[in-house]
Amino acid sequence: MTAVQTPRSVTPLLAPLLVGGLIMVVLGVYGRAHTPTGFAVGPAGFSGALPMKAWLTSGAFLLAVIQVVSALSLWGKLGVKIPAWVHRWSGRLAFILTVPVAFHCLYALGFQYDVPRVLAHSLLGCFFYGVFAAKMLTLPKRGTPGWTLPVLGGFAFTALVGLWLTSSFWFFTTIGFKV
């Protein structure tokens, strides 16, 4: 006899997705409406704001790769058991590394759209924080479809890869490996 599975509703996703969408819009509007200061915020230990942002984003990118591998392990897709704390802490640290970068980008530079790379970077930054918020808000929800966390996590990872490509990769290939 097979067990009957009740279909999971997408209704519990509405609030997290609305909040995530609101965060995306608020960040974009603030970044565009706010007059950028041009002042580098806290490049402590770095020669400037750009190297700080490039290295912190690279650290977040590396931790995001650990997130994907550990998530695959948690979902039983690797055949190797990685402890759940690795997933939780790599995510926490990755997020923490993005905060000073995002703060600097919004405060000192604002939402920019005059150069295609920078426009893509601005859009991806807003998208990343919105998707991240939606993912965190769906974690405690019961009854959400099984695809919810992998899809939102995949979007967050993809956004972070795009952010790394449009910032750190650009910096390292254009300016060099400065600290």
Rank of each mutant, 00 (worst) to 15 (best):
L63C: 03
A49R: 08
F95L: 08
P83S: 11
C105Q: 14
G125W: 06
S90D: 00
A120G: 10
A40K: 05
P145A: 12
L137T: 07
G59P: 03
G45H: 10
F103W: 14
W75Q: 13
G48A: 15
Q67A: 08
V68S: 05
L50C: 00
V41M: 13
R88K: 13
Q112L: 12
L119R: 12
A133Y: 02
T37P: 05
L97R: 03
L78S: 04
P140S: 12
G59C: 09
I66H: 04
K81F: 02
A94C: 01
K141P: 00
P145H: 12
A49L: 09
V68Y: 03
V99I: 14
V65G: 04
A60K: 06
T144Q: 14
Q67N: 11
G125M: 15
M136L: 15
Y129I: 07
A108F: 06
W55E: 02
G130E: 11
H87K: 09
L93P: 00
F46S: 07
A44Q: 13
G130I: 00
F61E: 00
R142K: 15
Y107D: 07
T138E: 04
T138R: 03
P43H: 10
A40N: 10
D114N: 11
V80W: 12
P100H: 08
R88F: 05
L74W: 09
G79F: 08
T37Y: 07
L139S: 07
K81Q: 12
H104Y: 03
